[in-house]
């Protein structure tokens, strides 16, 4: 178990930093190569959504990104147990996981960020959608970013609170040996 924590200002330029770091750590953790692109995109979406929310509500507050290598379904365990617990080596849904947690501090009550409304959202988008919303770039709702995340991550939980939203995404670690990070 290893956790890397990154705090970024709510600026679009830092989203790239976040996703590159996520991809690098995921590669290092041994995530299958085919999933690296998914992680990069999902983390980018989560951070983009958080940046947009902060721009509206709390632009000076930072956004927290946690990259957790080897997280199991249970609570965080001793780092030294990482390779000694046989259960963590099982090949299946209970295998070790690579988890990414993106936490923002923007109240979620103003946004309707549900993840199950992709079709209506898209229908409204290119047929009747309005032009750029405040703080946005196009007619896309931030909910689309969350919908993309749910399409990419193996497991997702989204917890919107008045004090901010926590997006948790995870992918199973492959049984292969961790790879050395390469250039991005």
């Amino acid at each position: 178990m290893a956790t890397i924590t990154l705090t970024i200002s709510a600026l679009p330029a830092h989203v790239r930093t976040a996703r590159l770091m996520a991809a690098t750590v995921a590669r290092r953790a041994g995530i299958a190569a085919s999933a690296i692109d998914e992680i990069r995109l999902a983390v980018g979406e989560a951070c983009s959504r958080a940046v947009a929310a902060h721009k509206l509500h709390c632009p000076t507050q930072p956004i927290l990104l946690q990259l957790i290598d080897g997280s199991g379904p249970g609570p965080v365990s001793d780092p030294h147990d990482d390779t000694s617990n046989p259960a963590l080596r099982a090949n299946g849904s209970t295998t070790r996981r690579f988890e990414v947690v993106v936490s923002d501090r923007a109240p979620s009550k103003d946004s309707e960020e549900t993840v199950n409304h992709v079709e209506p959202l898209l229908d409204g988008l290119f047929l009747d959608g309005d032009d750029t919303p405040p703080g946005g770039i196009s007619g896309f709702s931030p909910g689309l970013g969350l919908a993309v995340i749910t399409g990419l991550a193996d497991e997702v939980s989204i917890d919107p609170q008045d004090t901010g939203t926590v997006v948790r995404m995870s992918w199973p670690l492959s049984t292969d040996q961790p790879q050395e990070p390469s250039s991005n």
Binding site: S48, F126, D131, S138, G139, L144, V148
Partner: peptide
Amino acid sequence: EFLDSTGLGVLVGGLK
């Protein structure tokens, strides 16, 4: 090399 939903939004905006 990389495209996210923001980029999709721009393309859809162009399409509109």
